[in-house]
């Protein structure tokens, strides 16, 4: 039946303790600079980072928007190409044997090493960033979805057999919905990887995005701005992760009996 609501004091500590942790870190940071007299170009004070963030907010938002779109599109590409491939390799033994080892091999390859080639093929526009984001986000979606499709509870398959469901019906009405929690788990990993992929793409060659801003700020020895860009990237990554995690939490009770 319904689980008891979390006690409010628990909710308070859940917010208060992380905030306390953050404050402690900021204090150590500030203390370190004061104690060792670190120049701003090497490590800016927390307040300087905050000021750089506030003063450059429009810039951070417009560059962040570029990185956001590259990450999201790259993720969506990985999602919509990854799921059919997972379906194919999990439903056909032949396809599985043919392509699964290849998939593992591509995963073992560091994607950064491919980035310069992708740049040659696709140019310096958004296409190359999408390709890199897609490449890194693709693998967890394929592997988790394929795992999900192969771990349908046997009782559910018995149910399908007992009502004489066709292979097609068993797939769409039982195996696929039962695999959705796995798809979401894969997506949570993939979305954070997609942001990394987009930034790698921007690092290699770009004139926009937070990755590019980071490089520009670094070359100008504007360390507070570089930190502000990092902060914006962290916020972006967490927001995207939270969006997928939110879907996960919303769907969780529906799949309570499928999870192992």
């Amino acid at each position: 039946m319904a689980r008891p609501m979390p006690i409010s004091s628990d909710a308070v500590t859940r917010i208060a303790y992380p905030v306390l942790g953050l404050l402690l870190l900021l204090l150590l940071w500030q203390g370190y600079i004061a104690l060792f007299d670190v120049p701003q170009a090497v490590l800016p004070r927390p307040l300087a980072v905050w000021n750089a963030t506030v003063n450059n907010l429009p810039l951070l938002i417009s560059e962040g928007r570029v990185t956001l779109l590259e990450s999201v599109y790259g993720f969506l590409l990985a999602f919509f190409l990854g799921i059919p491939i997972a379906v194919a390799i999990s439903s056909s033994r032949t396809l599985n044997l043919m392509f699964y080892p290849l998939l593992i091999a591509t995963q073992a390859l560091p994607k950064v090493a491919l980035a310069p080639l992708i740049l040659v093929w696709l140019g310096t526009g958004i296409e190359s960033k999408l390709a890199i984001a897609w490449l890194v986000a693709f693998f967890p979606i394929v592997v988790d979805t394929a795992t999900g499709l192969r771990s349908t509870p046997t009782e559910m398959l018995d149910l399908a057999a007992s009502v004489r469901a066709s292979g097609w019906q068993t797939f769409w009405k039982i195996r696929f919905p039962a695999a959705l929690p796995f798809v979401i788990t894969g997506s949570k990993v993939a979305i954070t990887l997609a942001v990394i992929g987009a930034v790698i793409g921007e690092f290699i060659s770009s004139n926009e995005g937070l990755g590019n801003l980071l490089l520009v700020a670094n070359s100008q020895v504007n360390t507070p701005l570089a930190f502000a860009a990092l902060l914006a990237l962290a916020v972006l990554g967490m927001a995207l992760y939270a969006a997928v995690a939110f879907i996960d939490i919303a769907l969780k009770p529906w799949f309570s009996e499928v999870r192992h």
């Binding site: 559910m156 149910l159 399908a160 009502v163 004489r164 009405k173 039982i174 009770p253 499928v258």
Partner: peptide, 30 residues
Amino acid sequence: PQDDFGFVFQSPNLLPWRTVLSNVLFPMEI
């Protein structure tokens, strides 16, 4: 399995993403 057999499993074995009504209708849907 035959069309006019009904099977009740050891666990309820309901499809958790479906409503009660749509779980009961599952065999008819198939």
